[in-house]
Each structure stands twice: as structure tokens, then as C-alpha cells.
Amino acid sequence: MERNTVGVPTGGWTAIRFRADNPGVWFMHCHLELHTGWGLKTAFVVEDGPSPDFTLLPPPQDLPPC
């Protein structure tokens, strides 16, 4: 995992480009946990790719339901 910091001025924004090649739901949040409670968070849903190497494995048979 790589971590980088982007300085954004008040009222500013930034664009983040990344390669989504690992299926699953990935949580992204600000660098301060307090900000997560304020709603400064998001989740990326990465769907299966074109080949088995980029496909999420099924859950185990003994996984209890939610």
C-alpha cells in the first residue's frame, strides 16, 4: 500500500487517479479519524475484472450470514 498526502486549500479540491485492479469494497478516509465521523469518507466498489486474476473469490461455505 502506498500513502501520499495532498495539500488542499480551504474550499479547494483535488483529483486522485488510481488503478482499481483488486476486487472488493475499499474504504478511504481523511488522515484524521475525527473527520470520518464528520462524513469525510467514501468507499470504492471495485467489480470483477476480465480474467480470473482480477476476480474476487467466493466467500467460504462456513461464513455466517450477516
Rank of each mutant, 00 (worst) to 15 (best):
M1G: 12
M1Y: 09
E2F: 08
R3A: 09
R3N: 03
R3H: 07
R3D: 06
R3L: 04
N4G: 13
T5Q: 06
T5L: 01
V6K: 03
G7S: 14
V8K: 08
V8H: 07
P9S: 11
P9K: 13
P9T: 12
P9Q: 13
G11Q: 10
G11C: 04
G11Y: 12
G11I: 05
G11N: 07
G12I: 06
G12L: 00
G12N: 07
W13D: 12
W13M: 14
T14K: 14
A15G: 00
A15E: 10
A15T: 09
A15H: 00
I16S: 03
I16T: 03
I16P: 00
R17W: 05
F18I: 12
F18W: 07
F18D: 10
R19A: 06
R19G: 09
A20D: 09
A20F: 02
N22F: 01
P23S: 10
P23Q: 10
P23N: 05
G24N: 11
G24Y: 13
G24I: 11
V25S: 14
V25N: 04
W26A: 04
W26H: 15
F27L: 13
F27P: 03
F27K: 15
M28C: 14
M28I: 07
C30F: 07
C30V: 02
C30L: 03
C30W: 13
C30N: 06
H31G: 02
H31M: 08
L32K: 14
E33Y: 03
E33A: 00
E33K: 01
L34F: 05
L34W: 05
L34V: 03
L34H: 10
L34Q: 08
L34S: 05
H35G: 00
H35A: 12
H35W: 06
H35I: 03
H35L: 13
T36E: 07
T36A: 05
T36L: 01
G37Q: 05
W38G: 10
W38P: 01
W38H: 11
G39R: 15
L40M: 14
L40V: 00
L40G: 00
L40K: 08
L40D: 02
K41P: 05
K41W: 10
T42K: 11
T42H: 05
T42A: 06
T42S: 15
T42P: 00
T42Q: 02
A43H: 10
A43T: 15
F44G: 01
V45Q: 13
V45L: 03
V45E: 11
V46C: 01
V46L: 03
V46A: 10
E47G: 07
E47P: 02
E47M: 13
D48L: 04
D48C: 11
G49M: 07
G49D: 00
P50L: 04
P50S: 15
S51K: 09
S51E: 10
S51N: 14
P52Q: 09
P52F: 09
P52R: 13
D53M: 09
F54V: 02
L56D: 06
P58W: 00
P58K: 00
P59S: 04
P59A: 07
P60D: 01
Q61G: 05
L63D: 00
P64Y: 03
P64G: 09
P64W: 05
P65V: 05
P65M: 05
P65G: 00
C66V: 08
C66T: 08
